[in-house]
Simulated scan of single mutants.
Amino acid sequence: MSSAYLIAVGSNRRHHLYGRPRHVVRAALEELAALGTVSARSPIIASAPMGAAQRRFANAAAVMDSEYDPPALLAALKRMERQFGRRPGRRWGDRVLDLDIVLWDGGYWKGSALSVPHPDFRDRAFVLGPACAIAPGWRDPISNLSLSHLNARLTSPRALLR
């Protein structure tokens, strides 16, 4: 049985074949089709680095249907990251490719290596912005708020008053 997933895609390092991070993200969005049926791809945006990262990121999101359960999809996404040249490194450091499962139509998943929904997505405009472009009505199973509502909460000028 197939499940729907929202996948976040990011890069802030060049790739020897694809070039600049924006092109790495574009290639990764296409490669996701090897893991299921991609029904929507967001525009690619630029975002500021966070944590130890030094370079600006290119970010996007995709909605896909896959036969994989969440842990199997995570393993496949990690293999794809390695195929693109990602190496183990510092948390939030520069990377050729970062792929995260943000949401799953099955609701929650909690395991030793994976939590769905992604625990930090509600506080990341670089995830919510692209996600809203392709799935604004998808609801967070924890807050029951839509992605567009979460994004408005995060990016509204009044967000500082929360």
Rank of each mutant, 00 (worst) to 15 (best):
W104Y: 11
T37Q: 13
R91K: 14
A125C: 06
P119L: 03
I44V: 15
E67Y: 06
A76F: 10
I134Y: 03
V102R: 01
A113W: 03
L99C: 03
W92E: 12
P49W: 08
A40V: 07
L99Y: 01
T37G: 07
P130F: 00
L29W: 08
G111R: 11
A61P: 08
H118Y: 05
D69A: 14
E30R: 15
T37D: 14
A28S: 15
A40I: 07
R95V: 06
R79D: 13
V24T: 08
C132I: 02
F121K: 02
G137P: 00
R90E: 15
G85Q: 12
A27Y: 05
A40P: 03
V102E: 02
R87K: 15
A28C: 10
P43V: 05
A135P: 06
F57R: 12
A133H: 13
D120L: 09
V63N: 00
L103E: 11
L77W: 01
V96E: 03
R56Y: 07
L73W: 08
A58Q: 13
I101K: 08
A48G: 10
S42N: 07
L128R: 00
G36C: 06
K78D: 01
S66Y: 03
C132G: 15
G36P: 06
A33T: 15
F121E: 07
V25C: 06
R26K: 15
V38A: 06
T37A: 12
R90C: 00
R79W: 02
A27L: 05
R124H: 05
P117Y: 05
W92Q: 06
L29G: 08
A135N: 12
A61M: 02
C132P: 00
G89V: 09
R56Q: 14
G111C: 06
G129H: 03
A48N: 08
P21N: 12
L77A: 04
A40H: 13
P117G: 03
G129M: 04
P130N: 04
A133T: 04
A76T: 14
L103R: 04
I44L: 03
E67V: 12
S42D: 00
R122Q: 13
T37F: 04
P71D: 11
W109S: 05
R55G: 09
A27I: 11
P88G: 08
V25Q: 10
L97Y: 10
H118N: 02
A113N: 06
D100W: 00
L114R: 03
A135K: 09
D120Y: 04
L103N: 08
W109A: 06
S39R: 13
L99G: 00
D123V: 02
L114E: 04
F57E: 13
P49E: 14
R124A: 07
R86Q: 10
N59Y: 06
T37L: 14
A46L: 11
S39I: 15
P21T: 12
G93V: 04
P70K: 01
D105A: 02
G111K: 02
Y108N: 11
G93H: 02
G107A: 02
D105S: 15
R86D: 03
V116K: 02
E30G: 15
L29T: 08
E30V: 09
A60M: 00
P88A: 12
A27F: 10
W138Y: 09
R122S: 05
L32R: 09
G51H: 11
I45Q: 00
P49L: 11
R79K: 15
L99T: 07
D100L: 01
P88F: 01
W104K: 06
L128D: 08
A62N: 08
Y68T: 01
C132T: 13
W138V: 01
R55T: 12
A62C: 14
L77T: 07
R95C: 05
